[in-house]
Design a protein around this nucleic acid. Structure first.
Length: 765
DNA sequence: TGGGGGCACCTTTTT
DNA sequence: GGTGCCCCCA
């Protein structure tokens, strides 16, 4: 018989139905509440469940109240999911977990409270990449640096790199002295930061950087947050960068109750400054930390897990885990070789139809690509067949030109000092205010140290600007003032509608006769109506700056099309992994930039892709791929060779891996893991068959095409005339001028020129 | 000032 | 293939 102490009585064992069904390791991860805890959670091992249960457990045991928990995730999607799932466990109280969000949104919250400590006003604007680049361009130009050689984009990546490491301009060390434009990077960085301060703006990196420095330089502020946060939870710890790491370390010094959940094998944001090292050396950073490994996979079949595990074992830089599952057997991972991207799309679409006619649903399926340009082929095919699909994380709603323009109007109404917004819309729609006038205003603003709206006000009172430009500027200023009054009285959506109408912005698109204009008007309408949900302009702009997922209704029965990065944290019964070719995946660019380290990250990406699948994974590769509008022969990805053969079934139309299964004697062998040329017998045979299959069929151009002029066509077939018979033995493309002055681009591919010309003929009246 | 045409360059992945 | 930039002309 056990005796209960008073403290036990005071805190009775809580009813904990939510702990039921957890395995021993999961339970350990949930119940280890004191000190630093690292949960190494392999793919599909119930990571989110552990995280949410842990949170619920903390609340249920009375260890902390909802507002005393800081929970950071990497994406808004993850934050939302966590909120929902915690809500399900403990009831409605989650609404009161105010400190749950992404690193950036939590940082923004903190920064707004202490903005003055870094020279900002609390109402600062969060600028997007577009504004960031424009600002950098201006600085580069003002400094007389050749912007062709030293691009704003390049500068942005250098500065972002510094920010990711938590470095302010004055903290840059020796090794950074020579960065960008012969060592001027540091100065440009300082100028950029100064400019942002004047504009009362922040870029994405600043949210973290400023917050980090506030915590570091102000012990009283740090102490306040130490008192506030009793428990810290971090999701996707493998993706934190140095700045985030320092940020966490500072905050964790309070109670020391820090729980990080992550998987070194799923670290895929190295290009954004993520340091796998953070997770690899966790137990050194936090001595005495509890490390829990979750290795039982509840998601995938044995073959899928086996294929993924075999692949990832080729990485050297990892802690090493052995995932296992009870789900024996299942289908082997399918590998298919196709001729080109079109054939690939055809194959995938057909497989989707088969899946559905077997009684399953489209929503079970995801197509995961390395880069977003690869999506188009699938979209085209799906549209043609009328198959339902949705692009997740595609061209982002908030990044469209018309949405940004609309936001610029709102920003300028809210803060007159927002020069970036001013420049963006002062002549949109066209008001006859040209580059010269804007330059004059900018110069005056700079000289006097005032915002451009103010400079404009001064300037229209002088003779500096005359004629139409002057009148237009006067009208523009008057409009702005009126809209500002409006913002005091009208609801947000009404105000936006009035502004967009009165400014002539809506009219501009209505008069535009290009096919996209209708869509843009649609977007504007959607934008305005979505604003009805927000009470203040500030809250709305904060939302659009930080929440980038334009997540749509989830419940539709549609195939999901997204990038591998976008698929993290998701799972599907059937996953397609197209484009497994050298140069595409692993991405050549990534390899060029980061060598072996990047190769390992690409491999982790492949691992993430395969482990999204519950029942079936289908990998495809092609022999020819259109890259930059040119056809190229491409090699199957080295990752295909790295898949353990007993978990894979391979078949190919192109001669490679013919026969599948044991046919892997064709496997290429290379000593150098970075080498991209292959010399094995299998590869030679593959090349030979690809060569043979290049089309040499004669094609006749239809007279109706009225070809009157043409240039040399890639592949060297020379000039084309009406009625020409064209022979070609190489892939390529060319442009042809026609009688009616229109132009036609012809592409050779396996299907040949014929198809392209036909589609052109159809367009003739 | 702004529109059209020619041309170079390009493309990773996201908060 | 598509876009954004530059130059030239009305």
């Amino acid at each position: 018989m056990t005796s209960l102490s008073i403290s036990d009585m005071a805190r009775p064992a809580p009813p904990s139905p939510y702990l039921e069904g957890l395995n021993a390791e999961q339970r350990q991860a949930v119940e280890a509440l004191d000190g630093a805890v690292l949960v190494l959670a392999g793919a599909g091992t119930g990571k989110t469940r552990v995280l949410t249960t842990r949170l619920a457990h903390i609340l249920a045991t009375g260890r902390a109240r909802p507002w005393e928990i800081l929970a950071v995730t990497f994406t808004n999607k993850a934050a939302r999911e966590m909120k929902e799932r915690v809500g399900k466990i403990i009831g409605e109280a989650v609404e009161g977990v105010p400190w749950m969000g992404t690193f950036h949104s939590v940082s923004a919250q903190i920064l707004r409270r202490h903005a003055e400590l870094v020279g900002l006003k609390s109402a600062f604007t969060i600028i997007d990449t577009d504004d960031q680049l424009r600002l950098m361009k201006q600085i580069i130009q003002a400094e007389g640096i050749d912007e062709k050689r030293w691009t704003p984009r390049h500068l942005a990546s250098v500065i972002d790199g510094w920010k990711n490491r938590g470095l302010m301009p004055e903290q840059l060390g020796e090794e950074d002295k020579y960065a960008f434009a012969e060592g001027r990077g540091k100065d440009l960085y300082a100028m950029y930061q100064a400019r942002l301060k004047v504009l009362n703006c922040c870029d994405f990196g600043d949210l973290l950087l400023h917050t980090l420095h506030i915590l570091k330089d102000n012990p009283d502020v740090l102490a306040e947050y130490h008192r506030k946060f009793r428990y810290l939870l971090v999701d996707e710890y493998q993706d934190t960068n140095v700045a985030q790491y320092m940020w966490l370390r500072l905050l964790a010094k309070g109670t020391g109750n820090l729980c990080c959940v992550g998987d070194d094998d799923q670290s895929i944001y190295g290009w954004r400054g993520a340091e796998v090292d953070n997770i690899l050396r966790f137990d050194k950073d936090f001595p005495g930390a509890t490390v829990v490994r979750l290795e039982r996979n509840y998601r995938s079949t044995e073959h899928i897990l086996g294929a993924a595990s075999g692949l990832i074992s080729a990485n050297r830089d990892r802690l090493g885990k052995t995932l296992w599952t009870d789900e024996e057997g299942g289908e082997k991972v399918q590998v298919r070789g196709l001729w080109d991207g079109e054939a690939e799309a055809r194959f995938v679409a057909e497989e989707c139809e088969n899946w559905v006619s077997a009684g399953r649903s489209y929503a079970d399926i995801a197509i995961l690509v390395r880069a977003s340009w690869q999506m188009r082929a699938f979209e085209e095919r799906f549209i043609m067949l009328g198959l339902p699909y949705k692009v997740i994380g595609g061209p982002r709603f908030f990044e469209r030109a018309e949405v940004r323009d609309a936001h610029a109007y709102l920003r300028l109404v809210r803060s007159p000092e927002d020069d970036l917004a001013f420049e963006r819309i002062v002549n949109t729609p066209k008001r006859g205010i040209g580059e010269t006038s804007v330059q004059k205003i900018a110069m005056l603003a700079r000289e006097m140290g005032v915002p451009m709206t103010e400079a404009t006000r001064i300037m229209v009172g002088t003779d500096e600007i005359r004629g139409k430009a002057r009148t237009s500027l006067q009208v523009f200023l008057r409009d702005l003032a009126r809209w500002r009054d409006l913002s005091e009285t009208s609801p947000l959506n009404e105000m936006a509608e009035i502004i967009l109408d009165e400014s002539g912005y809506t009219a501009m698109w209505r008069e535009d006769k290009t096919p996209q204009a209708a869509g843009r008007l649609e977007n504007l309408k959607e934008l305005v109506s979505s604003m009805a949900e927000w009470d203040t302009l500030e809250a709305y702009l904060e939302h659009v700056a930080l929440v980038t997922d334009a997540d749509r209704a989830v419940s539709e029965d549609e195939v999901s099309l997204m990038t591998l990065h976008g698929a993290k944290g998701l799972e599907f019964p059937h996953v397609f992994l197209p484009g497994w070719e050298e140069t595409v995946f692993p991405s050549q660019r990534s390899l060029d930039e980061g060598g072996t380290k990047s190769l390992e990250e690409e491999r982790r990406l492949a691992y993430v892709g395969i482990t999204r699948a519950r029942e079936r994974a289908t990998i495809t590769f092609t022999a020819n791929r259109m890259i930059y509008g040119r056809w190229q022969s491409v090699l199957p990805s080295r990752f295909i060779d790295e898949l353990p053969h007993d978990h894979v079934e391979a078949r190919s139309e192109t001669g490679y891996y013919e026969g599948g299964g044991p046919g892997f004697e064709n496997v290429r062998q290379t000593a150098d893991p970075m080498a991209s040329s292959y010399s094995s017998p299998g590869w030679k045979r593959y090349q030979a068959s690809a060569q043979e299959n290049r089309r040499t069929t004669p094609l006749t151009i239809d007279a109706k095409a009225n070809l009157i002029e043409s240039g040399p066509v890639g592949g060297g077939s020379g000039k084309w005339k009406t009625g020409d018979r064209v022979f070609h033995d190489k892939f390529g493309y060319g442009r042809i001028k026609t009688a009616d002055g229109s132009k036609l681009t012809v592409a050779f591919d396996k299907a040949g020129v014929k198809k392209v010309v036909e589609s052109f003929v159809r367009e003739l009246p």
